[in-house]
């Protein structure tokens, strides 16, 4: 009987490990190939591990092919992503507080409107937004990302925060109110400390989505010296006639590193974030 259980476990684990290898294999291939010497080795050999490790891909790739190196593109991406994340957290929390804790006229309609924008495809609004931002002289700047974030542009995060705030007992607010706290102090002193997990989840998701976004930067940013890493990576495919793959792969690895780093230090929030709000991608 006991033996049977062991065999079953053995089969289950074997299967899980093989499946894990299949899933992770493309990433391993990416990682190891970025240390290979040249295209010939990358495409000619089936070995996963490089015959001779080299950092050429990283060194030459980082310099970039044109005038600008990846140091600039990384810096640009941070300049775009960090304020976007920061303002998303602040604005979404404030707006969610308004929806979760106050009764005012038209609240239901406004809340439904906000939820409806969750279903609105980006493609429908992208052209008028481009025209609008062009009118504001915001094209080729990072304002099209940062300003909407400051005005709670992502309904997903507002909704996530509302859900979270609803889970916090309202008695806490009420007793603070009796003690004479005004509404902003209640948010700041009482609710925010309790919201930490949700704030983390929000920051993590927004960081990763903005970091990986390609469509919007491609539309709103034209000048090479303002490119984000995703635009710069895409550029490697059309500038050179012969693609030097170890450089492309090395830079791909580097752009994935911040996401991997965040994922591993904050896994708990990741899974919770998905499980509690039930969303996305």
């Amino acid at each position: 009987m006991k033996k049977k259980v062991y065999i079953k476990k053995f089969i289950q684990y074997t299967f899980l490990i093989i499946l894990g290898l299949v899933i992770i294999y493309p990433l391993l291939w990416l990682f190891f190939s970025s240390f290979k010497v040249d295209n010939e080795e990358i495409f000619g050999s089936l070995n996963l591990i490089p015959a001779k490790w080299t950092l050429d891909g990283y060194i030459n790739g980082f310099k970039g092919s044109g005038q600008y190196g990846f140091d600039l593109f990384f810096l640009n991406t941070f300049i775009l992503v960090v304020p976007t994340v920061f303002f998303t957290i602040i604005s979404s929390t404030i707006v969610a507080y308004g929806f979760a804790r106050f009764e005012f006229p038209l609240k239901k309609i406004l809340f439904s409107l906000m939820l409806a924008t969750l279903m609105l495809p980006n493609a429908v609004v992208i052209i008028p937004r481009y025209i609008l931002f062009n009118y504001f002289k915001w094209i080729d700047t990072y304002y099209p990302f940062i300003v909407p974030a400051a005005f709670a542009g992502s309904a997903f995060f507002v909704f996530m925060m509302v859900q979270f705030l609803r889970g916090i007992p309202i008695e806490l607010d009420e007793s603070a109110k009796i003690d004479g706290c005004n509404s902003f102090v209640i948010l700041l002193r009482i609710l925010l400390p309790l919201c930490k997990p949700a704030l983390f989840s929000m920051g993590i998701f927004q960081f990763i989505w903005t970091w990986n976004d390609f469509f919007n930067p491609m539309i709103f940013i034209n000048s090479t010296y303002k490119f984000t890493v995703s635009l710069a990576l895409r550029m490697t495919q059309d500038t050179a006639t012969i693609v030097i793959w170890n450089q492309v792969l090395a830079m791909s690895v580097l752009t994935l590193v911040p996401c991997i780093f965040i994922f591993f230090i904050s896994q708990k929030y990741f899974v919770e974030g998905i499980a509690t709000t039930g969303l996305k991608a």
Binding site: W29, I208, V229, V248, S252, V253, T255, L256, F263, A281
Partner: peptide, 25 residues
């Protein structure tokens, strides 16, 4: 551990890096 490994590719979403990886593979 398995859940983490299986989830890993998903954090890259619609990134250019994974698209390039696909092209490369």
């Amino acid at each position: 551990i398995f859940r983490t490994v299986y989830y890993l590719p998903s954090i890259f979403g619609g990134s250019v890096a994974t698209a390039l990886l696909w092209r490369f593979l």
